[in-house]
Design a binder for these strands. Sequence first.
DNA 1: TATGAATGAGAATTCATTCAT
DNA 2: GATGAATGAATTCTCATTCAT
Lengths: 215, 215, 215, 215
Amino acid sequence: MVLPKNRQRARSDSEKEARRDAILKAAQRLIGRVGIDGMTMNALAAEAGVSKGTLYIYFSSKEELLLALFVDAMAQVVAIIEAEANADTLIEVMGRAPTEAPLFVPLLARLVAVIEANVPDNSLFAEKRKMRDMGQRVATVIAQVTGAPEHKAREASMALMLTMQGAAQFDISARRDLSSVPEDMRPMFEGQSFCKSFPAAARLILSGVTSDGRA
Amino acid sequence: MVLPKNRQRARSDSEKEARRDAILKAAQRLIGRVGIDGMTMNALAAEAGVSKGTLYIYFSSKEELLLALFVDAMAQVVAIIEAEANADTLIEVMGRAPTEAPLFVPLLARLVAVIEANVPDNSLFAEKRKMRDMGQRVATVIAQVTGAPEHKAREASMALMLTMQGAAQFDISARRDLSSVPEDMRPMFEGQSFCKSFPAAARLILSGVTSDGRA
Amino acid sequence: MVLPKNRQRARSDSEKEARRDAILKAAQRLIGRVGIDGMTMNALAAEAGVSKGTLYIYFSSKEELLLALFVDAMAQVVAIIEAEANADTLIEVMGRAPTEAPLFVPLLARLVAVIEANVPDNSLFAEKRKMRDMGQRVATVIAQVTGAPEHKAREASMALMLTMQGAAQFDISARRDLSSVPEDMRPMFEGQSFCKSFPAAARLILSGVTSDGRA
Amino acid sequence: MVLPKNRQRARSDSEKEARRDAILKAAQRLIGRVGIDGMTMNALAAEAGVSKGTLYIYFSSKEELLLALFVDAMAQVVAIIEAEANADTLIEVMGRAPTEAPLFVPLLARLVAVIEANVPDNSLFAEKRKMRDMGQRVATVIAQVTGAPEHKAREASMALMLTMQGAAQFDISARRDLSSVPEDMRPMFEGQSFCKSFPAAARLILSGVTSDGRA
DNA sequence: TATGAATGAGAATTCATTCAT
DNA sequence: GATGAATGAATTCTCATTCAT
């Protein structure tokens, strides 16, 4: 199972970083197959080609690993927004970016109820700071793009993050196999996919920002 | 252990309904003390003064019980909105109502990731229909109060529900004991309480509806 | 669910007997659908159109009901043997009869490990006497048909009953869906069906009787 | 609770084998005290001086453990037959060997109805292969000892295995405390002990083989 | 007699985490 | 640093049986 190659020790910092990334990548692949709830540390060790013990050298708990996965995904989302958003594309980009980072949406859906509930305080605060800073960067983009004043943009950024959390929840329901859903419920479930529900809500919020901004 | 009084059998439908309610009330009390994640069926049976088996006569699983609890809470929220919302109070009422039904917010936060994930399909669909209908009633209120067209109101109602889900998540974080939170993070956590985050987002959404509506 | 008709009380002995039979018949149908291990008293009550309490008026436990079912089936088997066995057909009839009484084989397979283990002594002894007497009737048939002396025939009858129990066990394995069985194991499983394993063994036993008998 | 000694980790394959055997031995002792049906994984963990989790490292379910116990016992039985059977002692040895391996008879009695019913297919097939091979070895002994042709010996071997299963069932009944059995039933129960019923039936079967063989 | 609501004992199992090697 | 055997807490749910009505 375990390749001898992997038994090599990661001595330098860059080797450690590489191994950490390899574990995260393995988690991504594994979750792709079995889902977040289906991921076990056992299976992850096998997928990553390391031992269970090694997992705990790099992440002090399963939830911390998931949290790291989420923060990475969020960084990707924010980078996309920064790179691509402008006055015309803001909403489109904000609706698309979250779906382009693998696992961002499903991890977001479990962020509070499942992940944060099981991460020790100091780790949590460290990661939360990163999230806050990324939120601030999104606010900056919004301010630049809409011309809204800084505090408005911050408010909108927070509202959008909140909205994303809600939309991520909706999205879980929407992933259900539609053939098992009664006819009359299908439109409801379909409308709850992230791609549909988030832009609709985001548009309302941002129009609130801009119209208010102008008023 | 079990009070003799409780051994009375609920033979008529109304007696059954009463017992079901008694169990739900007991769950509310128990969750108030130990939290949703801390509730066990064992402890609930003791709190309700019935046997474990009886719990399973009225609810076919723990999650179905939690789902019933949520639907009840949502019904209260919607009733408050219908009763109290008018042009002046809409936002205030929509921000307050969710906090007045015991357990609505924490149950909402776990609705998808924890509860729905473990309820069999047909039970789930039945409850989802109730939720959909309640959402429609909120849309009706919004339409009446804002004068927005029916489809706008429906869109806003859905966006508000989505927003509520996000705000419920935020709220979990906010409940953390602030004294354990580093100075620089406190504003962030404080701002995430349901009472603060949801009205802020709701205001943006509803202003979107009305300004759009007027346009 | 329950037909009013069934709520009528069975006052006369013949009515009681009829209701007892109806329950047994319902059990047969139900087991046909869900298997012996899948039968619950709840489902049986529904199938028989009576309440659970009523079941316990006629049978003091689930196992006693199964035991009654077995004794009935065994009576049918013995009746067939008595009616049809002669010098030419003995082995054929003894191999066929057990398969003609519904549930005889599967109940026999569970007779000791599952059923008798849970029947109170005095009920058990009463039923065991019936079985012993039926065994004696089979011995008589064997004696008449083979001309073997009484004690040889009794020995053979007992050996056959024992063999039947073994064959009934084998038969459970054989009922497995063969498509799920690896190629190399199929002949083994196929050879274990009651129709095959029991006659093979019975032939050896009866040839032992007759050849010994002649010697 | 758990002796430090047991916390030693079994790292080599032989250590693992030893621990597996230790668990099996503990199961034997425990079953000797409480019976097969009375054995719980909890009690077994205590008896073996390991944690419950460890049990599940070595056996993937309770039934798989029982199946392993049976296969071990069967191996002992076959070894005795191979070592001790000759033309004069065949029947005596075949009647005695099953009683010399602890738990062989009671496990055999539950093999199909209780154990196999709860073991996943691929584990089952692996163990069944072992049983088949052991059956073949018994057939070889029979062929050598009686001079019967190979196929006759195989048939007899299978019939004997079947007979053993039946006799194992009988034996359960026979273990009942005779003082609680009514006078008139005692001979019946006594005659059902494995030591009596199996040799009687085996003699008939083997005489069938040899007389047929000679004919 | 019949009903069916209530009972409650009872045990298997998972899997994140640890720590001896 | 890496390994992987060992740990053990922790909880759901079933279903035969009873007994108040």
